[in-house]
């Protein structure tokens, strides 16, 4: 094994772009990391006037990964998959203007246009399976991109509105002021989808024989809410970055 690494270093020294033949067909790794990101609209709607607070929260992830070399021994292509258990969460505080909302609960229906502060917390615990194509740039550096799917084992979306006013029905409706600490809480846990999927891309770098660091971005293609949920008038997508440290077996 040792001589193989020496060869690798030698090859690297000569031609950085030439791939060595020492790699095994499969490589396994385990890794632990942190997610930082948000459930966010694809583009910020005009109703959102300012984001006044954001906390990424502490989102841990643990994962097992396997990379399989595709094709002959000199192939630079890998198929990367695995499984991870992760948390994706955030809290934000935004100021909105004329944000249209409708709430149904049992027989009660309330709709209106809100101008003021909205605090949002989103939290999901998920089991995620990625499927990516990896391209080996150098034996230590691999770029990879592909798709992912998550099954959410717990999910929460809620928050409160305060420091503003609601126009009942539409912008010409009765004005109801929320001030001096009066607020309304909302909770739409049940409206979150339990399956998510999306695109991801990343890079991992092996900095010694067994240890590696990885950075990935994942972008959800599925709205976090069910399609028939109208209270939040725009679709929101989970967009998270992951930084991890791993050990290659």
């Amino acid at each position: 094994m040792k001589h193989l690494i020496i060869i690798t270093a030698f090859v690297l020294a000569i031609a950085n772009s030439i791939y060595s033949q020492d790699e095994k067909r499969f490589d396994f790794s385990i890794r632990a990391g942190l997610n930082i990101g948000a459930a966010a609209p694809a583009s910020i709607p005009q109703e959102i006037r300012a984001i006044e607070g954001y906390s990424p929260n502490f989102n841990g992830s643990v994962a097992g990964r396997v990379a399989m070399r595709m094709g002959h021994e000199t192939s630079r292509w890998h198929l990367v998959s695995g499984i991870s258990v992760e948390r994706k969460s955030m809290t934000t505080s935004a100021r909105v203007k004329s944000y249209s909302t409708e709430i149904d609960n049992g027989g009660s229906h309330v709709g209106g246009v809100w101008t003021g502060m909205v605090d949002t917390r989103y939290s999901a615990h998920a089991i995620t399976v990625p499927l990516m194509a990896g391209f080996v740039v150098t034996p230590r550096l691999r770029l990879q991109a592909g798709v992912w799917a998550s099954a959410l084992v717990s999910r929460a979306f809620g928050g409160k509105v305060y420091d503003g006013y609601l126009r009942e029905g539409d912008p010409t409706g009765e004005k109801i002021v929320f001030a001096n600490g009066s607020e309304a809480e909302y909770e739409f846990d049940d409206q979150l989808r339990s399956l998510q999927c999306g695109l991801m891309a990343g890079v991992e770098y092996r900095f010694c024989q067994h240890w590696l660091i990885g950075a990935e971005l994942s972008y959800g293609l599925t709205n976090i809410f069910h399609a028939d949920f109208k209270t939040v008038s725009f679709a929101m997508y989970p967009i998270f970055g992951n930084l991890s440290i791993g050990y290659r077996l």
């Binding site: 990101g37 948000a38 966010a40 583009s43 910020i44 709607p45 005009q46 959102i48 006037r49 300012a50 984001i51 954001y54 990424p56 955030m90 971005l217 972008y219 967009i239 998270f240 970055g241």
Partner: peptide
């Protein structure tokens, strides 16, 4: 956007 969500005032329309 994912990386800079906290600094996203630039994206405000």
């Amino acid at each position: 956007m994912a990386a800079l969500i906290a600094l996203c005032t630039g994206c405000i329309k």
